[in-house]
Design a protein around this nucleic acid. Sequence first.
RNA 1: GCCCCAGUAGCUCAAACGGAUAGAGCGAGUGCCUUCUAAGCACAAGGUUAGAGGUUCAAUUCCUCUCUGGGGUACCA
Length: 554
Amino acid sequence: MRSALVAAQEAGALAPLDVPQDVPVEQSRHTSHGDYSTPVCLGLARVLKRAPLQIAQTVAAYVPSVPYIAEVTVAAPGFVNFTLDPVWVASSVSTILAAGDTWGDIALGAGARVQVEFVSANPTGPITIGSARNAVIGDVLASVLAAAGYSVEREYYVNDAGSKVRNFGASIYSRYAALHGLDVPFPEQGYPGAYVTELAIRARDSFGSAYLAADDREAAVRELGQWGIQRVLETVAEDLATLGVRFDTWFSERSLYDSGLFDEMLAKLRAGGFVVERDGATWFRHDDLEKDAVLVRSERVIPNPEDRPTYLASDIPYMWNKLMLRGFDRAIYVWGADHHGDVPRVQAAAKALGIAGDRLVFIIYQMVTMLRGGEEIRMSKSSGEFITLRELVDEVGPDPIRFMMLTRTVDVTLDFDLDLAVEQSDRNPVFYVQYAHTRIAGVLRRAEEAGWDVLESGDLRQLTHPSEQALLRKMLSLPEILKVAAQSLAPHHLTTYATELASAFHAFYRDCRIVSSEPDDADLSRARLMLARAAQVVLSRALRLMGMDAPERM
RNA sequence: GCCCCAGUAGCUCAAACGGAUAGAGCGAGUGCCUUCUAAGCACAAGGUUAGAGGUUCAAUUCCUCUCUGGGGUACCA
């Protein structure tokens, strides 16, 4: 389109003007508007002082002739519409079948290294349903970026430093002591869940009374806390796997202190004049921040040295570790809205350390309100009242959960009614998409039983029916969807796309008999079998990008 | 008070960089299974996109204000 503008100008048909670098071309919503359209002439009307429709007509004549465009038309008030060549569209069946599982892949990322860090829930208890949205967004985002040509790693940040560990350890210790008939008071900020008692039993079975005999109870509590966290993480990994979520790396917060990286960062910030000491605490100061932020709490308030660093204190060396030590080009953080206030602080710290701001990307998703029978459920690990992710997956299944968490943009809070979720799980849109996939599998099975060689080639030029063409065009747009999803870091576009694709297949199935018993139709049947196989490839790809199953039977 | 996110069909949500006739699912309505899976399809109903201004050839989309809901504003984690 851009070349058409340039050509028109060079030919003297258009007055000289600055041709926009990016000419917007988008998919038409209505078939009467062709397959793609551009409103660019509307915008040029003012500059050129000519009617937009007239400009469009002039420019349309200069659109270069390419094999995939059959027709260029102009529509009021000044749109230029392009219609794809049906034969070219039909021939794309071969392209898609040849691409197979890689159909849709694009080279947008050019191999840039991206890390997606997500979930990262405190390892002081099981993963609750509160982490479901985070897990699905992060996982699918990572898949989308991988398909878009990025080199992606999934990371879980383990909060194994600070007072949580001691409170957790002390909770286990108290239960553990009780098992030995000793009364050690349960900590005020402890974790009362039943899983703590189970951990205490495991500790007794593994270590006997060794921790009770230790001289330094504080050290024993810390050690038991670390041990407990490792046990919890094993469960966390298993539970997330039931949802289809897996991590490449588990990164320890504690290691940031043990390695001395925190001290290093503090020294750098101090040298840059970003650190102030006040009221016995260490503060981070930056012009971008309205208020100073505490890095290290004062001894007066928090006596134990291990408990003094704040989250921000860890976030700074963690960021440095990701971008400078491990060399990721971009670090993506998936955070709940309850942490959005921390974003400016981390960004200010990055700026202070000379790191380009666009290398840190924060996906802030809004909270999920958990309901049961219309009543809100409040959950917390420290109250022991929560519903685990595992329970939900066991009840509803991973795919409906993933679809529910994925259909919404990250910017809206969502209500999740547990009763409704279970009740409606068999009406979840995910089954609509999966059903289209099984339908194809069923057709292919039947065809083989009837003696067809489903791998045989047919004459694709026969795929001229509107429903065939509509399905094909939808199949062809997966790369564009991936581009949008990857650029805007919005994985939810995939659910809309998958539903539309399934709908296009169902329409094709209704209108076009795939396997015909009429001998005269044999060649057409072969072409349609190819189309069905290609549609199955695209459906399967879309489902797997979302981390869902593409079943052969339902 | 200040900061962030949202408000679209009865309900839950879409709508790609500001484009042409705002779309799905659920719910409620009417039809379609002796031929490839009815977990499907077709038709019909449902909307002043919270409200008021503004920018623009064009606004659900951008800006301002008001109202409503959610989140954040501690040396807690």
